[in-house]
């Protein structure tokens, strides 16, 4: 997975890491905890680690079908760009 942030005012950021390393059971458990902490209890939604692991399994499967798919592309009016590629 690649994350590229291009900014006119700040330094550009290029992050590149293996999707499987990012999306595995261990990081799933940690990730679910972080997401739940971020969401808070007000929304009534609680992300389970098993759900996140399932989503990650699906991402790994889909990656074979759609390699290098641009998941998100943002071009802001002030010239900043963010691109997340599978």
């Amino acid at each position: 997975m690649r994350i590229v942030v291009r900014s006119k005012e700040r330094k550009n950021i290029h992050l590149r890491f293996p999707t499987r390393m990012l999306f595995n059971g261990f990081t799933g458990t940690i990730g679910a905890g972080i997401v739940n902490k971020h969401i808070g209890t007000d929304s009534g939604y609680k992300l389970r680690a098993s759900d996140l692991r399932r989503l990650m399994r699906e991402i790994n499967r889909i990656k074979k079908k759609h390699p290098k798919l641009d998941l998100v592309e943002v071009h802001s009016a002030d010239g900043d760009e963010v691109k997340i590629t599978l």
Binding site: L55, E58, I59, R61, I62, K65, H66, L69, D70, L71, V72, E73, V74, H75, S76, A77
Partner: peptide, 14 residues
């Protein structure tokens, strides 16, 4: 309207 452009491409299974 501010000029921001966002594209999200998500495979259907996701």
């Amino acid at each position: 309207a501010d000029g921001d452009k966002i594209k999200v491409n998500l495979p259907m299974p996701l």
